[in-house]
Simulated assay, not measured.
Amino acid sequence: MTSQPSSPKRALTRDAVLDAAAAMVKKDGPRALTMRKLAAELGTAVTSIYWHVGNRESLLEALVERTVADLGEIRAQGRTPAARIVSVTRALRRQLRGHPHLVAMVHERGLTERMFQPATQALVHEVHAAGLRGTRAADVVRSLLFQVVGFVLVERNRERAPVQYPGDEGLWDEATAEHDPALAKGLTGPPDPERLFLLSVRAMVDGLLGPAPR
């Protein structure tokens, strides 16, 4: 019996190299990415990797550029200015949560502002649509960006070091909760990040779009 001819090996491309490198970084972080491991993952020689993307530093730079581009344009959704602004913050949080190691690489290379540009541009447009201008509009945009980034950092910290956040059952009782059992129960249970994020951002947006403070 004659053996069937094997299928031709798929040609290696720059995009394929970047796809594999991005997957490795997303799984284990930038430090785990080596040219030798990447070549093994792709079933090719290290020299082929160098030919397509250059050295490791060039590869990391290409990943950063691609990450910034992949984050893409953020489109607001909703019928009211407040709802549309909240939708932008939610989209930015999803992006940051979905690419933690790649986002860290972007930050390390000083391209954070560029990475945030699509979300910032969307917020500027919606804040203008809400009737705000000038310094007050800038303060609103930056306050919301700080809220999103700070929230994501807290989430990531809890995930990376859960031992630092043990159960709070022993910390809250009727006395420490000032005789508010519902509050004690709420503080004892695990937090719902999505609900807390929406609660805090909606409150911020309502306050920031209201009358200017004295």
Rank of each mutant, 00 (worst) to 15 (best):
S87K: 05
T188Y: 02
P162C: 08
E194Y: 01
A76C: 09
A177G: 08
T89H: 05
V205P: 00
L209T: 06
N157K: 07
R142D: 06
R133W: 14
V103C: 02
H107P: 02
P30N: 04
G54S: 06
D15A: 14
D70T: 15
S7P: 07
L111P: 01
I85A: 00
R160E: 14
G131R: 03
D206C: 03
S200K: 07
W172N: 06
P100K: 09
L187N: 01
P8I: 00
I74H: 08
F116G: 09
D168H: 11
Q121N: 11
A20K: 01
V103G: 01
E108D: 14
G186Q: 09
I49M: 03
I49Y: 00
L38D: 00
G54V: 10
V148H: 00
F151V: 05
E159G: 06
V149Q: 09
L38I: 06
L209A: 08
H125S: 10
V149F: 08
G72F: 10
A184N: 06
T89A: 12
L132F: 14
L183W: 06
I74G: 08
K37Q: 12
P5G: 07
L96F: 06
L102V: 12
R90I: 10
P118N: 08
L187V: 07
E57C: 03
E65S: 15
R195F: 02
L145P: 02
A40S: 13
H99A: 14
V86G: 00
R94A: 15
R79W: 10
L42R: 05
G150Q: 05
K27E: 15
E194W: 01
D28Y: 04
L42N: 06
G150R: 09
E108C: 07
D173A: 07
G110Y: 12
F151A: 07
L111W: 06
A11H: 05
L102G: 09
S6P: 09
F146S: 09
Y165N: 07
A137Y: 11
V205H: 00
V64Y: 01
A203V: 10
N157R: 12
Q117M: 09
G43E: 02
E169N: 06
W51E: 08
G167A: 13
K37L: 11
E41C: 09
I49T: 04
L96A: 03
L199P: 04
A21M: 07
D70A: 15
L12W: 02
K9V: 15
I74E: 03
M204Q: 13
I85N: 00
M105I: 11
G131M: 08
R136H: 12
V25Q: 01
R14T: 12
A16L: 14
L123W: 00
T13V: 12
H52L: 13
H107C: 05
T13S: 15
G210Q: 03
P193E: 07
T112I: 10
Q121G: 04
G72T: 12
A32Q: 08
